[in-house]
């Protein structure tokens, strides 16, 4: 199990990659979303190969209204 923080919430996960984590957390694979780890952008194409490490801080974002 790896301890990470996802959108500000700490969690323990058996996921080895970002793609696995997103799936386990219930994100829809085709959803309009983008990801960053430790404030660095991770392109969608790299999600399956992006290994998770203890302490990683993951952000998942989506479009919202804005000015």
């Amino acid at each position: 199990m790896t301890e990470v923080s996802m959108n500000g919430r700490a969690l323990q996960t058996p996921a080895a990659t970002l793609a696995e984590l997103l799936q386990q957390q219930g994100y829809e694979a085709q959803a309009a979303m983008a990801c960053a780890i430790n404030r660095q952008f991770v392109p969608r194409a790299q999600w399956p190969s992006c290994a998770l490490h203890p302490g990683d801080r993951i952000d998942v974002i989506a479009p919202v209204t804005g000015g």
Binding site: Y27, A31, A32, V60, I61, A62, P63, V64
Partner: peptide, 22 residues
Amino acid sequence: LTVGLRRLQPEHGGGNAFWQRV
């Protein structure tokens, strides 16, 4: 049109609805 970006929780089903409307 300007749009923003905010954290997405999985239970909200993605930002697809707003994005499709825009």
